[in-house]
Design a protein around this nucleic acid. Sequence first.
DNA 1: TTGAAAGCGTTACCAT
DNA 2: ATGGTAACGCTTTCAA
Lengths: 348, 348
Amino acid sequence: MAKQVRLTLKMLADELGLSTCTVSRVLNGKGQQYRIAEKTMQRVLEHAHERGFSPNLVARGLRMKQTQAVGLVLPDLSNTFFAKIARSVANVANQNKFTLEVCDSQDSIDLEIEVLSLLRNRQVDGLIICPVGIDSEHLRILESGAPPAVLVDRYFPNLRLPYVASDNAGGAEAATRHLVEHGHRKIVCLQGLPNTITNVHRLDGFRRVLQVNKIRFRNYMIAGGGFTIESGYQATRKLLEQGHSFTALLTLNNLIALGALKALHEARLNVPEDVSLVTFDTIEGVDFFSSPLTTVSQSPRKIGERAAIMLFDLIYDRGGQDRGGQAVEQIHLPTRLTNRQSVRKLPV
Amino acid sequence: MAKQVRLTLKMLADELGLSTCTVSRVLNGKGQQYRIAEKTMQRVLEHAHERGFSPNLVARGLRMKQTQAVGLVLPDLSNTFFAKIARSVANVANQNKFTLEVCDSQDSIDLEIEVLSLLRNRQVDGLIICPVGIDSEHLRILESGAPPAVLVDRYFPNLRLPYVASDNAGGAEAATRHLVEHGHRKIVCLQGLPNTITNVHRLDGFRRVLQVNKIRFRNYMIAGGGFTIESGYQATRKLLEQGHSFTALLTLNNLIALGALKALHEARLNVPEDVSLVTFDTIEGVDFFSSPLTTVSQSPRKIGERAAIMLFDLIYDRGGQDRGGQAVEQIHLPTRLTNRQSVRKLPV
DNA sequence: TTGAAAGCGTTACCAT
DNA sequence: ATGGTAACGCTTTCAA
């Protein structure tokens, strides 16, 4: 199987009777700048096109010390939320003639560390990361700005890294307020992974609204402990078994909601007649649920897009990311409450 | 901003008072093979670890003419189906110490062509592609096997390329049979993009079962023309407006189903009381729909995994992909019908 | 207006 | 048991 040889710049130059550097210049649009004869340029361009030449980007990457590639690390590519982030990042990257190298950390800190080092060894020009957990030491090195990195969705307050996330506290407040305004006082928040910033902020918002409305916080009001279907399911089952008389559930992401729904369903409890429910994130086809869910939705598309744009600003050195500077851009995008009637108005 | 210099093999060698090639050998585990002194190896390994050295993969890629990267081209990363494919491909790739370069062709043939050439210029060692449409000329070049490529989900019979897809005809047959066995004879199939192999095979299966059951095919029995929510919605609306008296719908993917559901809902028609429905693909949370849908589901995870494994076989030259050979592996994975009671039993 | 040559960080051939 | 040197394919400095 004779590995067919790719056309190289040198071959092209030989065919043209020119030096590689002349050809390189023309092909990179630096013909004017180097005052290469109009005629020569024509000849080169034409021939290159004819022979279908395109440069070896690996060689170029080595020489220029930049690969035109960015890395993206996500905890679960099969979750629509992250998939949408991936899509918008990919599109922005491609628009910039960059390639996107995607890794799925499978919610494992070890894998995250591993792929991160893999990507860095591959000399990516930038990194977008949705860090998996609560440990952040391995991200410290990114504070140096080489390569530039932007965090999405989750971040660490003690890390001087730019990020794009949702206004989680605000979203939780809106959701909780919605419940309270409908007369609910016995609300259980099914949380995600404790100590992640996302979870912390959402809980903050939740408690704040309780407090403002003089609802005494009790321990049973926070249950669960993971952003998974399983966690939502188990937590809800346990609540029901223990006979807590809550009237409403606030689930901190789509998966937890699905799990809770399953448990409620098994217990023959209906939403919103028996239990009211508000959840973070949307669910595909939620409009066709037997009771469509009221949601606090984020915009993963915008998160990804914004993060990618920030990253390219850093890569192209717009926006002054010098590490001494104070300007580490940190963004909280607004969330939106969509009322789909999964909250019952309680009698006063 | 002084770009901090990365540690190179040469620096390491200098520090050790050895030549780069010795260090390189040790680090690549070829110490034994080249009979490098046990002591030296120790020294090298230790020092490298101490200094946290890791090789520049771009340079290595150039030198070795292989980048340890594979490309993945998908029409829409935000569709769970493709996202799941992406995830499993990414995982297999990472297990093999490869990186995955993902591109979203946004269902545009032009973009597909563009990213394909981008990926090839980046010298990826292999390609997995879910081609967007009906044109395949730009894929012809991949028949040469350099770089090796595997198609997923969609493919072209006139192209000698390996692929992994679902048994679409079989799936459609199962679905249609299910409907017929429940007494339905006025069935409308809401198709996807005409002329794509996926669509063609599903229609084949559909018609075959009609024929076997002596149900005369009529034109209104195939409607729509795209794998999108919009297409499903519009087609269903039109059907209703025109007053065709169908009793069942077979939708050829999840998005079409969602669109059809929306139209039915607006017309205050219920599933399955007024209209029965079976759809290809699953939908997140379909179990909680007011009427859960009976589905013919594929396994995107398996498709991706299988394709990735096939690709690595080709890359590592297992499985003899020499282009003279007859063995272009083409696989149809089985589908599964999950009955969720969205088909009503009609009186005889 | 063009070219020679160095260099990016590796690996591999051929010496010693 | 180890090292010198070329080579991978490109860009860029300096020279002509």
